[in-house]
């Protein structure tokens, strides 16, 4: 079944030549005009506004994730400690705000920092109970958090994938209304993960089951 090695080299030229011929042969009678862009780029709520925050809370909770709102950054540690409960080990990306974890120190939970002293392996992460990260941007209308792997407080993609519990700290100013607003804030050259609730499947009779391969529990802490 394998094509001869010599033929492979010409596949690129042949496919492109076929597509050029197809593009011309099938060209529509009238050339298409410019792409209409009359959809809403902004939603009803300004980024970071009370309306956007309320909508985000409603939409995230709709996915059966939890949202806890705190007024000041200083209040995060207490909430994180409560959400982590009796977790014995917690992973964090290298740029995470260490103040987030000050509430769990007293219980002897072990904190693993990715890259300090060495990058955490998949096996390491398979043994931790939870991960705590920030987020690059959140979309109120869809209840989506976007993690930018190049951002220090969000970290490499496997950090938020292998552990079974993800606590995500979102700053109010990073909450936008719509998907277009979110994409405009992101750098496509960075690996990005759009997270809308805990992992889920509807593959069995369309019954939604939360938690398959990704974290089965997602808790959001909304600051400000």
């Amino acid at each position: 079944m394998s094509a001869p090695a010599g033929a492979r080299g010409s596949a690129r030229e042949e496919v492109l030549a076929r597509l050029r011929a197809g593009r011309d042969a099938g060209a529509p009678r009238t050339a298409p005009g410019p792409v209409p862009r009359d959809y809403a780029r902004r939603g009803a709520h300004d980024p970071g506004s009370p309306g956007a925050l309320d909508l985000l809370v409603e939409r995230v909770e709709d996915y059966r994730a939890t949202v806890t709102r705190v007024a000041r950054p200083g209040d995060v540690a207490g909430v994180v400690a409560r959400l982590l409960g009796d977790a014995g080990s917690v992973a964090v990306p290298p740029g995470a705000d260490r103040a987030w974890l000050t509430g769990i120190g007293g219980r002897g939970a072990v904190v693993h920092v990715d890259g300090d002293p060495r990058p955490l392996t998949t096996a390491d992460l398979d043994r931790v109970d939870a991960v705590v990260t920030g987020a690059a941007v959140a979309v109120a209308e869809t209840g989506t958090l976007v993690l930018d792997a190049a951002a220090g407080d969000q970290g490499r993609r496997l950090l938020t994938l292998v552990p079974d519990h993800h606590v995500c700290v979102v700053r109010a100013e990073d909450v936008v209304g719509t998907v277009p607003e979110a994409l405009a804030r992101l750098d496509p050259l960075h690996p990005l993960t759009f997270v809308s609730g805990p992992s889920a499947t509807s593959d069995i009779e369309l019954d939604r089951v939360e938690g398959v391969h990704g974290p089965r529990r997602l808790d959001v802490v909304l600051v400000g």
């Binding site: 709709d62 869809t142 190049a150 490499r156 993609r157 998907v179 496509p188 960075h190 690996p191 990005l192």
Partner: peptide, 27 residues
């Protein structure tokens, strides 16, 4: 916006990944 609502009937699907080439140290 179009795909998740049409597909699974959700406002957004749980996970969307985007990547560009190879990122050293990640993936």
């Amino acid at each position: 916006q179009l795909l998740p609502r049409s597909s699974t009937g959700e406002r957004m699907n749980p996970y969307t990944s985007t990547w560009t080439g190879v990122t050293p140290g990640d993936g």
